[in-house]
Design a protein around this nucleic acid. Structure first.
Lengths: 226, 226
DNA sequence: ACCCATTTTTAGGCTTGCCTAAATTTAGGT
DNA sequence: ACCTAAATTTAGGCAAGCCTAAAAATGGGT
């Protein structure tokens, strides 16, 4: 129904604003790597579509309509299912899946989506730990929090890692950080200094700068009996 | 490297002209469903590319250069691998695979191509019996001939069926005709009349009009001991 | 030698999706 | 009330890929 430009814009709005907030023109311009004036034009188009993809008030950003939300979630579902499929079935590495999925997410049909979901057993999370939207538009929930806010001296499990920078993923992979892995935070150095932590059963201590730490979310470790 | 329009044009030239013949402007216009004048423009562009995709003499059609041929075969390899992949791994039906592959063939990377080829065990033929070009540009060979030319009273095996018309594929599927199936030609009715034949172990006699028969190729049956 | 079908050229147009630069408007904070 | 940053409008442009209609060229067949 929509073009690739529209899909990418809706996805960007969802990722910047979620369900309730509005996405700003400047934010979208940066996310989509296009000029702000181009964004304004696109937003006008999206809000004048019939039915409209977004609710748009000038100078107040854009919010997805139900239709826009559904489309955004559909594209994200495509993306994440494809990532998992590449990882599990086609033996792609962690850092390869994002780029390939970025192209394929616009090219596959609903049939293809259904079939890979089925082959993968209707998965709920992609290889980076991001929730895969369900066909009905709901999102699997996993209560997690930012690694930055973790209590020193405690343990946690990696919940998800950002997939925007492939080199960061490679690095995380090389030190064993991936969803499901247990970490132990020793201390947080002052003045936005690095987080000192251990990964899994490895005794080595790693220093995570704020950029790296900011790309990781964690969840409380289930006690062994859970 | 090339755009989708270029890819489709190169594929059309290969399919219309093969390796040695030239494809005509009119033929390409029909195949691509665009105006002849647009084809002329496209051919000029393709021949002026650096390096050129085609050899083009005005009023004498176009022939692929080595580069053009390589690209065409790459797209066809993509297409046929995807078809087989959809059929075997994702449980698509015979008549669904073509359309989906038509979109995906332009979207997948060489990595994706390699991985599905590997998962499928480096197959040589797609679900319709068409040869899958190898990465080195060679084509698996299978000596076959047109069903139209088959000797009445003999047996043969279906080698391949055209995949251009999904409804024809559905029909063939419904009467059990697919690559590898044995058929027995009873007689050919005169004046371009239908071919009367039996399919597999089924005793029913089917009448194949020239259009249907023309979309099927056969090969001599291997004697049981082969 | 000539005709006609095919092909090519010419000249113009359309849409999508982006760009730029400059001028203007607006909202929100002080 | 005013200032400023953000957003918007305006006006123009670009490239890809297609379209049309009409005119011109070509070349193969008779």
């Amino acid at each position: 129904m929509g073009t690739e430009a529209i899909d990418n814009c809706l996805k960007a709005i969802f990722q910047l604003a979620g369900d309730n907030d509005r996405a700003t023109t400047a934010g979208l311009a940066e996310q989509l790597a296009i000029a702000p004036a181009s964004v304004t034009g696109m937003l006008k188009k999206l809000s004048e579509a019939d039915p409209p993809w977004i609710e748009y008030q000038k100078h107040h950003g854009a919010r997805l309509t139900d239709r826009g939300r559904a489309r955004a979630l559909e594209i994200i579902r495509h993306h994440r299912l494809i990532e998992l499929f590449l990882y599990r079935v086609l033996d792609y590495s962690w850092d390869e899946v994002h780029m390939e999925a970025e192209k394929l997410e616009h090219a596959i049909s609903e049939t293809f989506e259904d079939r890979i979901a089925h082959v993968l057993g209707d998965p709920e999370f992609d290889p980076h730990g991001h929730p895969i939207p369900r066909r009905d538009g709901t999102l699997p929930d996993r209560a997690d929090s930012d690694l930055i806010d973790m209590e020193p001296g405690t343990d946690a499990e990696v919940s998800r890692v950002s997939d925007h920078d492939p080199t960061m993923l490679q690095h995380l992979s090389s030190i064993g950080v991936r969803p499901g892995v247990r970490i132990h935070l020793l201390e947080r150095r002052p003045f936005d200094g690095p987080l000192m932590l251990r990964v899994g059963d490895d005794q080595a201590v790693h220093a995570f700068g704020t950029r790296l730490a900011g790309s990781i979310r964690i969840r409380d470790i289930r006690s062994a009996a859970a």
